[in-house]
Nucleic acid binder design. Structure first.
Lengths: 337, 337
DNA sequence: TTTATCATGTTAAACGTTTAACATTTCTTA
DNA sequence: TAAGAAATGTTAAACGTTTAACATGATAAA
């Protein structure tokens, strides 16, 4: 009973108060002043629930990401995405709801979407779990503007912001090749996501175009991204005579590096290595790690921008593909001109 | 107009529908069935805004953390906290709003709290920025149950969950001492937070109790936690003849390691090192890094539990102090019995 | 058979806003 | 100065729930 209270205090009608607060009509200076003072005095804050009930606008958007398991590397990637989203939303005074789902568990009920079904976020940013887009279908049903982050959906006609995974992978293989590597292995996986798939594709494309050998025995596809699987992947490739490795994930890279170091292999002379994502630790190891950097923060920021545009009535879809950046350090080898 | 729609479809009153949906009264099996079917058919979802307006219960809690800057190490720490909170809330079907504020900027208006002032979260989990607790004061004003995470507030009578920073630091110094180190330096800072302060205190206490030398010249207090300041801290300490370093932050640790490696210093023989927080990269460097691990995930999970207890009417404050864990690897030295 | 109790259903007020429609006062302008 | 326009204010309905209070019919107890 809050507007009402201000109304009593000022002797003005509820409607007038509302207009002062929202600036939806001109109100005489005197009245405005009275209202302002009363608001100040009793510390009036509009009740969001009531406002939403009436206007259907919550000024809140939801960000749905994988990550119920602690200590997963992708979590950290998404933290930068969150920060980007958040910073954009702050500019326009929107709130952010972060919701997570268990990627590996393939949660049937897509719990995270329950929030959304409660139908009171204005828009959704989502990192979907599979290319098939089951989640997206559900979102479409509730008919809320939506932008996809980081991953693509088959045949989707929905705005999205993601990395150029193909190019990233291509660049990685290319720099290894330019450093004289001929048998370049691939460590990655998760082909059911567009990121995993795209990187693998980029790898294959590079191998083809650069005239290298494509050989299944120097490809390790994992279904979980851990240091452990990085280690066993490295083992497998080593048995098959390689001189370069492109690793499509941060944790896998750690595993690969660990095993190579354990085996006392000289990087990059014997084997060149290029990783994915840019983390601080990569400057710390010897040799420092050449890697493909994704613009996580920008991804979040831009996705939020696009969504806000939609909320303001902009029609049509935008597909933004952010370039990856090749961060050249030492582990790839020495480029021969 | 949704309950109304179901009402039309079934011929039952709105009240009855509501009771079926919420299980707040017994309803005859026939009616119940009719309602269920209609709900299913039109895909009815209760309107949260209306429900909140009526009940004042949003089943939403807010988590407020520092972190508007991308790529800060603490961000990653908080990601695990978020995950912990989230997983607890999922169990009881609560939603999570994540809000961030700029720690370094000391934002005057405490923008993050605006969300809360909109007064529709049931409770707040917050990582406050300073010991003085300006934020907390504001939260108290709006009178929402609150639990503090990770940091302490002076004279606060509010429930909190944090790490035993003192003990963590103590353990770090102790194991260095046990490995024969006599002049152990400290790299840290941020004394205005209880974490920074606590770790420094633990260091001093250990130095005292273990009969080591306390010397200001081997103490480096930084006001920002970056690799760069880690490097310059290491430089400073090296000029003052040390044989051990305890670094109270992840990024600073990276900097220190980097500089020691650059200087070709033998770790741990010449200088023993113990870091803070446990990240994957610490297993990757040579030698692997001994460190003090905090239970970030648990911190979030437990804080959420406490808050939920409060929401269910539990009175009184709980102060949980989670033990840190000494993760023994190689960089501290060799323990002499 | 009468009465009290229980099971089930309905009515209508309330939650705190927004906003269309109307009412009054004050300016403009011919 | 009269009439129309603009400025400022009020009234009341609506948003979609929840829930106390009441109504009805059925069942159990006396």
């Amino acid at each position: 009973m809050s507007l009402k209270k201000v109304s009593h205090l000022t002797g003005l009608s509820i409607a007038t108060i509302s207009h002062v607060i929202n600036g939806t009509r001109t109100v005489s200076p005197q009245s405005r002043k009275k209202v302002m003072e009363a608001v100040q005095k009793i510390g009036y804050k509009p009740n969001l629930a009531a406002r939403i009930l009436k206007t259907k606008i919550s000024k809140t958007i939801a960000l749905v990401i994988p990550g119920v398991e602690p200590k997963r590397s992708t979590n950290y990637f998404f933290m930068d995405v969150i920060t980007g989203v958040r910073n954009k939303l702050i500019e326009v005074d929107y709130d952010l709801i972060v919701s997570t789902y268990g990627e590996s568990k393939g949660e049937k009920d897509l719990r995270a979407l329950q929030v959304l079904k409660k139908q009171w976020v204005d828009g959704i940013l989502i990192v979907p779990d599979r290319k098939d887009g089951e989640q997206i279908k559900q979102i479409n049903e509730i008919n809320i503007p939506c932008v996809i982050i980081d991953r693509r959906i088959d045949g989707g006609r929905i705005s999205s912001v993601d990395s150029n995974n193909e190019k990233g992978a291509y660049d990685a293989v290319k720099i290894l090749c330019d450093s004289g590597k001929k048998r370049i292995g691939f460590v990655g996986g998760y082909l059911h996501t567009s990121t995993g798939y795209g990187r693998f594709n980029g790898y294959k494309k590079a191998i083809n175009e650069l005239g290298l050998v494509f050989d299944e025995s120097i490809i390790a596809l994992n279904d979980c991204f851990t240091i452990k699987s990085g280690i066993s992947s490295a083992k497998k490739l080593l048995e098959n005579n390689i001189d370069g490795i492109f690793v499509a994930d941060n944790l896998l890279t750690m595993g690969v590096m660990k095993h190579l170091m354990y085996d006392k292999i000289k990087i990059p002379d014997q084997i060149g290595v290029v990783g994915y994502d840019d983390y601080d630790w990569m400057e710390l190891v010897t040799p420092t790690l050449t890697t493909i950097k994704q613009q996580a923060y920008e991804m979040g920021y831009i996705a939020a921008e696009i969504l806000l545009r939609k909320l303001n009535g902009f029609e049509g879809n935008e597909k933004i593909i952010l370039d990856t950046k090749l961060i050249i350090r030492e582990s790839h080898g020495i480029i021969r001109v």
